[in-house]
Structures are given as structure tokens and as C-alpha cells.
Simulated scan of single mutants.
Amino acid sequence: MDPASLIPAAEAIPSPWGWLEALLIGTFALHILFMNLTVGSVLLAFFGRLTGRQRDLAHELGHRAPTLLALTINFGVAPLLFVQVLYGQFLYTSSVLMAGWWLSAIIAVIIGYYGLYVHDAKFDAIPGLSRLALAVSMVFLLYTGFLLANNMTLMLRPEAWTAYLDNPRGSLLNLSDPTLWPRYLHAILAAPAVAGLYAALLGKKKRRQEWIDHGLAWFTRVTMVQVLVGGWLLMSLPRPVMLGFMGADTLATAALALGVVLGLAALMAGVSKKPGLAVGLTIATVLVMAITRAQVRLLTLAPYFSPASLPVKNELSPLLMFVVALAVGLAAIAYMLKLYAKSAPKTAGRG
């Protein structure tokens, strides 16, 4: 069977695809930053509770995690919508193929969210319950990330959709894809690295040198592992896509090279114990890697589809309304976070 025959017809888009792709990349970078902060904070807090080291830091990160998760979820809406607009015929199909698993992500996030509140509320009162709630939250958040990795890779493989003929129950997973595990690990390992920088900044704010050292240790060590996982991910890509990042496609090659340079520079800043510089370079790295991810999607789907071929209705008002709403929303969130930081208790373990 020709996989191209399984791809539904594309819908017209309201504005040129380049604008929508740029907004997809920008909003995804914001989402992934908050995701890294959330999942990484949970992981650092869990290992802190497990080992008994840096208990105050575990308390601090656990206290902030529910707010970070709420921001992660909200910032995830926009890029998901843009993916649906540009690549809906692929994403909707993969979502249906794994519908049972995909719908379970909603329950998983709710359980994870509730567990973070229990962990914070019972931290001192019932330590055992608090630790258990944190472990449950961590497992369900990692599970949700695994489902996202499955869906985002399955949508790129129309040739794998024929498995529906043998399994029409909506329970497919993309386990045979060689990019699944390195892609998932690459996303998850970024979390404790980013959260380590966050911990270092909290330590700098609260004048806790042990937090700074602990956070930078997480950042530098995990980032070193990331270099290896990133190489694994590159080698696991389909050969035409991999070659695109090795000189065959100028933009893809430039994006990958810039991302690697920025990542190594951030690592060196962490080794030099310059958390502020490491944060700036890491944010830049995440943005460039979001561009790289977009290039992976474009190059992988190239045999079947290009968003440049989508018909355009030239209805710019929805796009302008979104941009205005996004700007106002970002300003409002920044103001709320400022108020949140000011209202937090000024104790050693909370802030």
C-alpha cells in the first residue's frame, strides 16, 4: 500500500505558512522551557527526598512545581494549535491511531498535578505521603512525555500507519521508530539540566552557595550526557534527514551547528560557575533547537508534504488577534509571576 494514500487532504490556512511556522517555533520554545523547569524541578526534588540531600532545595522546588506545571500546560496550547493548523492531517491521524493512550494523557496530567500539591502540603506534616505523592507525580509526568514523543514521531511516519489494519483499536505506539527513545531521552534529560540552573539562580537569590553548587553540578553533568544523546538522535534519523543536517540542507545544518555551539558555550559557563550567563545561553539554545526540531519535521515529511503547498485564504485578522492576545497574555503572566515572587514566604526553604 502506498503510504501517501493514507494521508487526509489538507485544509486551507488563514495566512502564509511561514508566519504560522515562526509562531509555532516561538511558542514551542516557551512551552519547552517551562516543561523543562517543571519536570526538572520534580526530578531534582525527588532525588533530594530520596537521598536526603538538599532537603530545603527539594522543598523549594516542590513548592514552585504546581505553578510551573500550570504554566507548562497553558504554554503548550498554542504550539499544539499551530501544529494542528499546519500539519493537522498528520497529527490527527496519529492521535486517532493511538487514541486510547493519547486520551490517557489527560488523566495522567491531572494525577501528576494533584500529586504536586499533596507533596507540598504534606512535606512536613506527613513526609512519607509527601514523598509518595512526588514519586507518583514524577512517574505520570514522565509517562505523559513518553506519549507526546510517540505521537510527535508517529505523525511523521505515514508508512507506519498501515499497522492500523492489524490493530484498529486505537492502541498503537510508535515503538519501532528508531528515533523514539533518543528523542524522548533528549527532551527529558534537558529537564534536570534546566532545573539545575533554576536551582542555582534560587541559590544566588537566597545566598545559598550549596544550592548554586548543587544546581550547577546537575546542569553540567546532565548536559555532558545530552551531547551523547544528541549524537544518538542525529544518527537515528532517516538517512536523507540526517544528511540534511550534515550539509545537504543549509538551514538545517546551520541551525544544528549553532545549537551545538550555544549548548557547549552554556556548558562552559556552567563549568565556570557563571549561572546567569549559562541561563542566557541555554534559553538561546532551546530556541535554536526548536528551529532544528522544525527542520526535522519538514525534512521527514518532505516526501509526502510541504506546508508551503497549503492553500492560503489570506484572512490575517485571526493571526493579528492571536499575536495581540499573546503579547497581552505574556505581559499578564510576567506581572503575576512578579507578584507571586513577592508574596512568597522569605524563609530558607521557601520563596
Rank of each mutant, 00 (worst) to 15 (best):
L154Y: 13
P66F: 11
L189I: 14
I111G: 02
T38S: 14
T162R: 11
M336S: 08
P275C: 07
L243I: 05
M242H: 14
T72P: 02
A252C: 08
S41T: 03
R169E: 15
W232F: 15
L24I: 01
F47L: 12
R293N: 11
K205E: 15
L320C: 00
L202Q: 04
P14I: 00
V328T: 10
L330A: 13
V279D: 06
L165S: 09
G170A: 12
R293H: 10
L330S: 03
H63V: 13
P8H: 06
R239I: 14
V324K: 00
L301V: 14
P318G: 04
R297M: 15
Y87K: 02
L180S: 10
T51P: 03
T144Y: 04
L319A: 06
L228I: 15
L43Y: 11
L57C: 12
T179M: 13
R55M: 10
I106G: 09
V227C: 06
S272W: 14
I32C: 06
L71K: 03
A294N: 14
A255Q: 07
L30H: 00
G230S: 11
V225K: 05
S171N: 15
G40C: 09
A191N: 05
L80Q: 06
A12P: 07
L262F: 07
Y117Q: 00
S317C: 00
N151K: 02
